[in-house]
């Protein structure tokens, strides 16, 4: 099925009143973030999208594909479902080796050139994760970050899903900037549930949630894109300090100062 747009018709928030955002349309190629405090209904919103809600979920939202009610069959067969959800508790339970599992999935998807597609999936995942995946490792032995990286790679490459929902990618221990760069190379709708300002500001727009309701849709402004660059630096600073601790080094005021100077936040001595 060719997806051009997903429209969400607002339902009601936790207090039963109508959502302030009564309609929002996501178009093919959009990168969207869903933001808001814990418990505000972000996960419920992506569940509604994944389930093609038709007034039949607690929020009473309606989700349309290309402006129309999607055929029920879409959600019957996950291999034909254009939406892939990677939730916070999604996991691999199979202890099949990575390569064998990916080949099994590729066979179900009837992917052409199966050996090659397994390789491409693993190399995609390896760009997101610290330690590379080993093809003969059982999937249940992958680390949290490796698992998340492989889930994303599998959905993008083998699943080739046009719409991908990612719940709190920042908790996954994967390389976020790299992930966003890689994902931008694919024409899909990516929807991030996130608390991470970097992901939010690198999105095209963000949906703000409160009390179970969509409050506002905010387009990312030019200034925010510049701010995103600064956030990236702060984030990279933290990452590099983390890396030093991981490697068994000590931190000192001097090291931090050096980093801040390198980032241009402090004048060089």
């Amino acid at each position: 099925m060719e997806i051009e747009s997903i429209t969400i018709h607002g339902g009601r928030g936790k207090d039963g009143t109508a959502e302030p955002v009564s309609e929002v349309t996501l178009r093919m190629g959009d990168i969207v973030s869903i933001v808001g405090p814990t418990g505000c209904g972000k996960t419920t919103l992506i569940n509604d999208i994944e389930l093609y809600a038709q007034l039949n979920t607690p929020s009473c939202r309606r989700v349309l594909i290309n402006g129309e009610r999607p055929p029920e069959e879409l959600s019957w067969d996950p291999s034909r479902n254009p939406i892939a959800l990677i939730s916070q508790h999604t996991n691999f339970l199979s202890d099949m080796p990575v390569a064998q599992f990916l080949a099994t999935h590729a066979a179900i998807r009837q992917s052409a050139d199966r050996d090659h597609i397994v390789e491409r999936t693993v190399s995609f995942a390896n760009q997101l994760t610290g330690e590379p995946l080993i093809l003969t490792n059982p999937m249940t032995e992958l680390s949290g970050g490796q698992t998340r990286a492989l889930l994303i790679a599998d959905a993008v490459v083998i699943g080739n899903s046009p719409v991908i929902l990612l719940d709190e990618l920042e908790n996954a221990g994967i390389h976020r900037t790299k992930a966003l760069d890689l994902l931008r190379g694919y024409r899909k709708v990516f929807i991030f549930v996130t608390h991470d300002p970097r992901i939010a500001l690198l999105s095209d727009y963000r949906i703000v949630m409160k009390q179970g309701a969509m409050q506002r849709v905010i387009m990312t402004e030019r200034e925010e894109r510049l701010v995103a660059e600064d956030i990236k630096k702060i984030d990279d600073l933290l990452l590099s300090l983390r890396q030093r601790i991981r490697e068994g080094d000590r931190l000192s005021e001097e090291v931090v100062r050096e980093h801040l100077q390198n980032l241009g936040y402090m004048p060089a001595a």
Binding site: N47, D77, P78, S79, A84, L85, I86, S87, H89, T90, N91, F92, L93, S94, F101, L102, T104, H105, I108, R109, L151, D154, A155, I158, G159, S161
Partner: peptide
């Protein structure tokens, strides 16, 4: 179904 990967759901169904 919310607890397992999409890929495993597909294999399970198959």
């Amino acid at each position: 179904i919310d607890l397992v990967s999409q890929a495993e759901r597909e294999v399970f169904r198959a």
